[in-house]
């Protein structure tokens, strides 16, 4: 018979809270770096110069074609072979950021392409420079268009943090699975773990919906 021992969870609350904090921290930092990197990668993907475009394309394809777990192992366990000694949390965040950058980049690229060519013509003929067109016309619109996609990728990255537990980053999954192993109270710990991720995903998507609503108030949804 399965019983739910809430007291056990309460006893470990400080540990759980710290794990939760680390999960959120890893997600936020990784998402932030990944978006910046993704924007650069997207510009590379759209570059007219093949010498730039092809390697960037290869980077994106490799990231998207291999499991995150392998990327993480390669960086964390394999890193020292090429002189890269990283703490688990550093390796985790770095791997997550690289992983996310490929997915964000594809979104950015699609967003850029979704803006009608005519608008760019109008901007060109009126004399805006290439950079001004990117910053003033393309990025603001692209951001609104791709918010749902950004939220999705961010949720996925948030969930991927659970995998960091495998290389002993003391985030939420690591903490709770650890408590489970110690006390055999897997039902309690894993339920709390699952619910926490559900809450995180829900919050992220609420936040995304809210931002989208705020930003797109006056935007033509049909563009």
């Amino acid at each position: 018979m399965m019983t739910f021992d809430a007291q056990l969870i309460l006893n470990h609350l400080p540990d759980i809270a710290s794990g939760f904090g680390i999960t959120i921290l890893c997600t936020l930092i990784a998402c932030f770096i990944a978006m910046l990197l993704g924007l650069v990668v997207a510009l590379g993907l759209m570059s007219k110069a093949k010498i730039l475009r092809y390697p960037v394309r290869l980077y994106v394809e490799i990231i998207r074609g291999t499991p995150f777990l392998i990327q993480l192992f390669l960086l964390y366990y394999g890193g020292p072979s090429i002189g890269l000694y990283l703490e688990p949390i550093e390796a985790g965040i770095f791997a997550l950021a690289c992983n996310g950058s490929a997915y964000y980049a594809e979104l950015f690229r699609a967003g850029f392409n979704a803006i009608p060519k005519g608008q760019l013509d109008a901007a060109k003929i009126i004399g805006l420079s290439r950079l001004q067109i990117i910053v003033r016309i393309q990025i603001p619109q692209m951001m609104v268009l791709i918010i749902p996609g950004l939220v999705n990728v961010s949720i996925i990255l948030g969930k991927e943090t659970a995998i960091l537990s495998i290389v002993t980053v003391p985030e939420l999954a690591f903490v709770l699975i650890g408590i489970g192993a110690e006390t055999y109270a897997y039902a309690e710990t894993l339920t709390v773990l699952a619910v926490s991720y559900l809450i995180l995903a829900e919050l992220t998507s609420r936040f995304g919906g809210w931002t989208e609503k705020r930003l797109s108030k006056y935007m033509e949804r049909s563009i």
């Binding site: 399965m2 949720i155 969930k159 991927e160 659970a162 995998i163 537990s165 495998i166 999954a173 699975i177 489970g180 897997y186 039902a187 894993l190 773990l193 699952a194 991720y197 559900l198 995903a201 829900e202």
Partner: peptide
């Protein structure tokens, strides 16, 4: 859909394996 998309697969695997 929300459950299976919101919970990391790793956690789902753990749940089914241990629970």
């Amino acid at each position: 859909v929300s459950f299976f998309r919101g919970v990391p697969l790793l956690v789902q695997l753990m749940l089914s394996y241990y629970c």
